[in-house]
């Protein structure tokens, strides 16, 4: 991680906002066009992964701190489950689309698909935080092969 090139640093600085914006678009417009929470979340996390690979983990942790990523992961899962439980409360069916059944919206508008857009946002948050955490763990807590051939985890300096 020492020989970082200036070109990669500058280009990643210019690319990151656009990648992030595209991820937000894919998450929010998942019910209107191809996309959705899962690919949008992966695109969002790839913005942070680009920062992690290009500028190192200090800069990446400044953009998405470890505690915030953990919280986002949990918040995404909880939001997904609670939307499903709200469907159970309002209509008696787990995962029912109660918003669409109670207040149906117009097709081809962004605020029409009821709980689908909420679920997309929850899954997007969850996938983004999860993939970033997995890469962070793999790059901070590394496995290396010790003297006796057994695996040890090691700090990445």
């Amino acid at each position: 991680m020492k020989n970082r090139s200036l070109i990669i640093e500058r280009v990643s600085r210019w690319m990151t906002p656009f990648i992030f914006l595209y991820g937000v678009y894919v998450v929010l417009y998942g019910h209107l066009s191809p996309g959705g929470g899962f690919p949008g979340g992966v695109i969002l996390s790839s913005a942070f992964i680009l920062i992690l690979l290009a500028k190192g983990k200090q800069q990446a942790l400044k953009n998405l701190p470890y505690g915030l990523a953990k919280k986002l992961d949990a918040i995404g899962a909880l939001a997904f489950i609670s939307v499903a439980l709200l469907g159970f409360v309002f209509t008696g069916v787990f995962f029912a689309n109660f918003l669409q059944q109670l207040w149906p919206g117009e097709p081809f508008h962004i605020l029409n698909a009821g709980t689908i857009i909420l679920n997309n946002i929850a899954i997007g948050l969850k996938v983004c935080a999860s993939l970033f955490l997995v890469l962070l763990f793999l790059s901070i807590l590394r496995i290396s092969f010790g003297k006796k051939g057994q695996m040890q985890s090691m700090e990445d300096r």
Partner: peptide, 16 residues
Amino acid sequence: LSSTGSTNHVMGVLLD
């Protein structure tokens, strides 16, 4: 479309 409101049918199936 009428029961989920989602124009993207894949998302309607996946999340509803």
